[in-house]
Amino acid sequence: MKSFLANKTPYFFIAPAIILLSLFSILPIFVALIISFTDLDLVGISDWSSISFVGLENYKDVVSDPVFLKSIFNTLFYVVIGVPLVIVLSLAIALLINFGKARIFKAFRVVFYMPSITNVVAVAVVWSYLYNPHLGLFNHVLNLLNIPDVPWLQDPIMAKISLILLALWRAIGINMIIFLAALQGIPKTYYEAAQLDGANNWKQLTKITIPLLRYAIFFVSITTMIGWLQFFEEPFVMTNGGPLDSTTSVALFIYRNGFQFSNFGYAAAGSFLLFIAIIIITMIQFKIQNKQQDY
């Protein structure tokens, strides 16, 4: 009896988590794949008999949808400009904080991390006010410096940059902490030896710190890249894709087709294309990383 119970115990412990993960993570993948080949919409939800298989039609339509193509361009714009900025800035701040010896430097960790824990809607509300063309703080400060108004969220290109600025502000904190943790893992003796050899700060940074942070940098670039390919919350709450879809990301395109236009099959096809793109880009990054290690 006892051994029978002992055999069952682990299953009892994992059951709730496994059931929930299967239901809300594993099963949805298959559901998404199936419905991406159907014309499922609002009618189809209540009456399954009205759903019909359309083969690859959704995929064919979505790759020729001008809004989808525009959203791919926008997402690449976010990734190409945003990801390097996140890595460079969070690494720079982590290095500066790590360089400081006084106690006060620890307080900076809190300041730079704070935007990461702030609710995205609250952030959007506050930044919409800051970006406001007439009443906003940013334009007011620029005017004081004799610089004309900037159309923060009104101009198609500027709106994208404004959203990147906001996302950058939110993303630095968490990556800075990851870099700081990695920096603390570097043995002090390396630096002492380098100092004995007369290496200056810059030499120590480029010859010891950066090479030893390679794994952390790789980790941050992979996770940031995956995150920014799914860029969603900022355009969703700030601009809802406007003006003229110039800030619509692929993720926002999928959300809109699914929940606003109820084209579930069409949206699922779009989401699978995004998934495949993420897998391919991640694999390329791993390939590049492996090549670099060969040196």
């Binding site: 995956i226 692929v250 699978f272």
Partner: peptide
Amino acid sequence: PGQVTMIP
């Protein structure tokens, strides 16, 4: 990714 599971 969250976008894939959201609708299902």
